[in-house]
Amino acid sequence: MIDYEYKKPESLDEVFALLKNCGSQAKLIAGGTDVLIDIKHRKIEPEVLISLRGLNDLQYIRKEDDYHIGAMTTHAMLEHSELVEKELTALQQGAAQVGCVQLRNVATIGGNVCNAAPSADSAAPLLALGARVVLQGPNDRREVEMADFFTGPSATTKKDDEVLVELIIPGDMEKYGSSYCKHSRRKALNLPIIGVAGAIKLNSDNTISDVKIGLTVVAPTPIRALPAEEFLVGKAFTDDVLTEAGKRAAEPDCCMPRDSLRCEGWYREEMVRVLIPRVLKQAAGNL
């Protein structure tokens, strides 16, 4: 019989107090669509669940100088946000392809990031959009680049007494076009074989001013395709250049895809080569 206490604090201060009192027996829960399954499979056996769903003020999508997204914002809210669709297209596409309607209605962006699955649908778009996570502790607040946040499968730099409260995407991204491709067997209830997101800014002479590429399921964590990005900046936006970028991203100094139930490593490598040019063209189409 699985049994735990369920706490529903209404402020962050209450959350920190509970975390301090309960120590390692406690687990934070947002939408719960990953945590509750882990409990069911007894991967984790917390004595106390601390729900963040009472923190209604962590549910927002705002554009100020930067874009601010509250950690408790659901995937459905991102999927249906006109602002996100227009200006952060890759993130809208990622959110809209998580699981299914029922899961998107409760699963949160903060939870998806903290769960740190190598296949997370929000991760590649957030990497491509240059996002930072905001971690709030009992005494201090710090920002971490998305690319530095993930440290391994299900592992992040978040400390046990910290709560991920917000994601920040630089306001400059409004000048980029972005796109996400979830390469999977089915359209719903499926994890990606690989996920590729790109954000691109072009100069008036059609050369690439800046580009960021996020990849999932090609390494133990979601990653940026830095060798491909470095190659692309300053080059002409042509098929040949994009093809070469795909090849560079598939090299072992960038991707190390493994064989898994969903597919073998060589196929993932091949799809990196194919999908990077495709996604960057779609991203440029969204400029």
Partner: peptide, 11 residues
């Protein structure tokens, strides 16, 4: 909103 009641804590 449609939700999965199996993953919805009653609290």
């Amino acid at each position: 909103d449609a939700v999965n009641s199996c993953l919805y804590p009653v609290m």
